[in-house]
């Protein structure tokens, strides 16, 4: 509130980022590790503050922690829900220490464009921010593993039609497996003899399925793990 939220003048070629995390030390660390291709224009430490700052600044990308205090206790997913009108112009990248499937799935299904763990290196984080800013999806190996777990890896789980939401296509699954094996998008592209753009298309398609699918394994699997 004390910030008058001065909307920064956009600099061409530099992506504006808002950091949302309740740990001051971690925000400082991220701020220091991002390179000159991005610019941190604002920070927030709670759900309500995040909604205020994001709606005031309209950044290109929001780095969003999954666990946040304040609001109705919904954490990062609540920020996403309350910023739904902005989702067309502002992209959210979830950033968390949590390995818990329900945390990941909750923010992704609320509209985040990707999920990376906090162990990520500075340069990779900047790459991820740029990728999200370009409306592509960012999948960490672990998120790819979650996807494979949720959509199944058996032979019968392959989608036949492209518009099927509840199953992955053979190609999408291949891409997910390679990402889970630690391949970068570039390495996936050269392994499968396709362009990086195609890899990004596949990943975005998987993200969309993850967000929209009503596959019962997905919900059941998330629910089963919430109990633990």
């Amino acid at each position: 509130m004390s910030q008058a939220v001065p909307v920064p003048v956009p600099v061409p070629g530099v992506v504006d980022v808002v950091l949302v995390d309740d740990h001051h030390m971690f925000r400082a660390g991220v701020r220091a590790s991002l390179d000159e291709r991005v610019r941190v224009v604002g920070e927030a430490a709670s759900v309500d503050e995040a909604v205020t700052v994001v709606t005031g600044l309209h950044p290109a990308v929001v780095l969003l922690d999954v666990h946040l205090p304040g609001g109705d206790g919904g954490g990062g997913a609540e920020v996403l829900r309350r910023c739904t009108p902005l989702l067309g112009t502002t992209r959210f990248l979830a950033l968390s220490v949590s390995d818990a499937a329900e945390d990941v799935v909750a923010v992704i299904r609320a509209g985040a464009r990707g999920y990376v763990t906090k162990a990520i290196q500075g340069r990779e984080l900047t790459d991820a921010v740029l990728r999200v800013a370009a409306d592509d999806a960012v999948f960490s190996p672990r998120l790819a593993g979650f996807v494979l777990d949720a959509f199944g890896t058996a032979a019968g789980d392959v989608a036949i039609a492209d518009d099927e939401l509840d199953r992955l296509s053979a190609r999408e699954r291949e891409v997910m497996r390679l990402i889970a094996r630690g391949y970068s998008y570039r390495e996936v592209a050269s392994e499968l003899f396709i362009s990086i753009k195609t890899v990004e298309t596949h990943v975005s398609a998987v993200l969309r399925k993850l967000q929209l699918s009503s596959r019962h394994e997905l919900t059941r699997w998330a629910a089963a793990r919430r109990l633990l």
């Binding site: 190996p141 672990r142 790819a144 593993g145 494979l148 777990d149 890896t153 889970a180 094996r181 630690g182």
Partner: peptide, 9 residues
Amino acid sequence: VAVDTVVVG
């Protein structure tokens, strides 16, 4: 060295 482990199933 940290090992980035992903397990499916």
